[in-house]
Each structure stands twice: as structure tokens, then as C-alpha cells.
């Protein structure tokens, strides 16, 4: 308690000092020194490619010769005359809004479970992390088709319980679920971030509340969860962004065709087919910018909403 009171007192002094300090010339540059690598990076490695692609999105650039300006035609085609594009939007939205919450719930649950003081937890944590280590390697593609194929282990197991399932990989409507499960299976990265977040919570918070006689649930609801909200926000946003851009999973099921019957035609997969398969880089670029806007809007919404539930210590 004493520390806190002292800190608050200091705080007032600090604010005054800061005001004085920042008024001096040059002091305002310090933040930019910290930011310098990032700033240079953005300008050198991102800015030019990003603006190039924005420009290309208004052209019919096809890798040959100079791009021709065609205004908004690509954007109009997309929404008015391209059923496959609308299908890819549908598949992607479904994937994002089902797979991400499932994955996060799974990751948080296991992080909480594996954060308790039971013997052998380090080993368990590492074992649970193995699936996430292989990423989207070729071996995974073969494995997943083996597991979710017509005679795969999943169907064999379900068969024991009397469920007669078709091939998950080969049936529209099922295929995307095989990919959602793949995402959930590779829940390791959000789990680790949750774990790291849990460890960040100062232990004296718990000690204090134990003295107050708070039970485990109460501690979870009043300490763990609020303290974890910045991390939860981070995980939610990052998983959302990466799921909107999901690309490799579709290769796992359909070698990049997006089949069966376009049921796994993810947005970036379709973008890629247009850009690198058909050489319609102009069209692919406009798809990229629409996706950028979609992701941007959802991220902005998440940040807006976060004012209500994310707890920062300041």
C-alpha cells in the first residue's frame, strides 16, 4: 500500500517534470529514436510495395508490358460478375468466425490448465505444442488427408459409435471443417502467448486476494481474466488477421484448387490463383485491397469495443 501511495505522489512530480522536459528542444526526438528501425523498415520494405499494389489494383496489369489504368473496373467485377469471388468471401468469413473463437477458447483453457503447479507440466506443454511446430509443411497435407479421408482414423473412430461419415476431405460442407479442426489443432501460438500473459500477472495480486479469502473462481474472474484482457485482445486480433489471410490450409485439402466444388476456396487462395495462376495481378491487387479494408474494419471494431473490456494498468 505504501508503495502505491509513494508512487502516486511521485507521479505528480513526474508529470510536472515531463512537461518541463518535453519543452526543451530535442527531447521530443527520443521516441523517434526508439522507433527509428521500424520507421526505416516501413519506408524501405513496405511502403513502396504497398503503394505499388494499390496502383496496380486500378490497372489490368498481367506481367506483360505496362499496366493500363482501368479505374474501378476490377472492384466492380469482383462484386457484380464473379460468383467465385463471393464464394471465397463466404468461405473465409465462415472460417474466421468459427475457427478463431474455437481456437482461442481451446488455447485459453489449456493455458489455464497447464499453468497450474502439477508435476510434468513442462513436458505436457511441449507435447501439446508439437502440432503447431510443423506449420503448413507438406507432410501435414498428407497426414491430414490420411486422418480425415474416407477411411481415415476419424471416420473409423466415429464408425465405432455408429456414425457413418463421408470423406471429410472430399465432401463439400465437410472439407472446411477439416480445416477448422486443423486450425484448432495448431492452437499452440495463442496458448503460449496466454501462458506468457498469465506469468506476467504479479503474484502479489493473488496473494492479496487469497488473504481476502477469494476462491479460485473469484480470482479467475477478478484477477486473471481482467489482467489477461490485453493479451486476449492481441490474440483475437492477430488470429483474426491471419485467418482472413489463411492460405496454406487450402493447399492441404485441395492442392490449391479450393475444392471440392470451391468449398475451401479461401480469399487469399483465390487471390493467388488470379495473380499467379492467371497472371491477373491487377485483379489480385484489388482483391488484396478489399481484404485490407475488411480486416481493417474488423480490427478497428475490435479496438473500439476493447475500451469496454480490456484492462490496462494506467
Amino acid at each position: 500500500m505504501l508503495h502505491k501511495a509513494q508512487a502516486i505522489l511521485y507521479l505528480k512530480g513526474v508529470r510536472m517534470m515531463r512537461r518541463v522536459l518535453t519543452r526543451r528542444r530535442g527531447e521530443g526526438l527520443i521516441p523517434y529514436l526508439f522507433l527509428a528501425p521500424w520507421l526505416i523498415g516501413v519506408l524501405a520494405f513496405s511502403a513502396i510495395p504497398i503503394f505499388t499494389s494499390l496502383y496496380l489494383s486500378f490497372t489490368n496489369y498481367n506481367f506483360i508490358g505496362t499496366p493500363n489504368w482501368i479505374g474501378l473496373r476490377n472492384y466492380l467485377t469482383m462484386f457484380t460478375d464473379d460468383p467465385q469471388y463471393l464464394q471465397s468471401l463466404k468461405v473465409t468469413f465462415m472460417y474466421v468466425f468459427v475457427a478463431v473463437p474455437l481456437e482461442l477458447a481451446f488455447a485459453l483453457g489449456l493455458a489455464l490448465l497447464l499453468n497450474r503447479g502439477i508435476g510434468g507440466l513442462g513436458t505436457y506443454r511441449s507435447l501439446y505444442y508439437i502440432p503447431s511446430l510443423i506449420g503448413g509443411s507438406v507432410a501435414i497435407a498428407i497426414l491430414w488427408r490420411q486422418v480425415f479421408g474416407a477411411e481415415g482414423i476419424v471416420n473409423q473412430t466415429l464408425g465405432v459409435f455408429g456414425f457413418d461419415m463421408p470423406s471429410w476431405i472430399g465432401t463439400p460442407g465437410y472439407a472446411v471443417w477439416a480445416l477448422i479442426l486443423l486450425k484448432v489443432w495448431q492452437f499452440g501460438s495463442p496458448m503460449i502467448i496466454f501462458l506468457a500473459g498469465l506469468k506476467q500477472i504479479p503474484s502479489d495480486f493473488y496473494e492479496a486476494s487469497s488473504l481476502d479469502g477469494a476462491g479460485r473462481w473469484k480470482q479467475f474472474a477478478h484477477i486473471t481474466l481482467p489482467m489477461l484482457t490485453p493479451i486476449l485482445l492481441f490474440n483475437a486480433i492477430m488470429q483474426m488477421i491471419s485467418s482472413f489471410q489463411a492460405f496454406t490450409p487450402a493447399y492441404i485439402i485441395s492442392e490449391g484448387t479450393g475444392g471440392p466444388v470451391n468449398s475451401t476456396l479461401f480469399y487469399t487462395l483465390y487471390l493467388y490463383q488470379n495473380g499467379f495462376g492467371n497472371f491477373q495481378m491487377g485483379y489480385a491487387s484489388s482483391m488484396a485491397w478489399v481484404l485490407f479494408i475488411i480486416i481493417g474494419v474488423f480490427t478497428w471494431l475490435a479496438f473500439k469495443a476493447s475500451d469496454r473490456w480490456v484492462h490496462y494498468d494506467n
Binding site: 513496405s46 510495395p49 504497398i50 499494389s53 496496380l56 488477421i241 489471410q245 492460405f247 480469399y267 487469399t268 487471390l271 493467388y272 495473380g275 499467379f276 495481378m281 489480385a284 491487387s285 482483391m287 488484396a288 485491397w289 481484404l291 485490407f292 480486416i295 481493417g296 480490427t299
Partner: peptide
């Protein structure tokens, strides 16, 4: 982070 890599 929001722009698909493939166009860059």
C-alpha cells in the same frame, strides 16, 4: 500486416 503478402 493486413495486406496479403502475395501482392507485395
Amino acid at each position: 500486416m493486413m495486406i496479403p503478402l502475395h501482392v507485395l
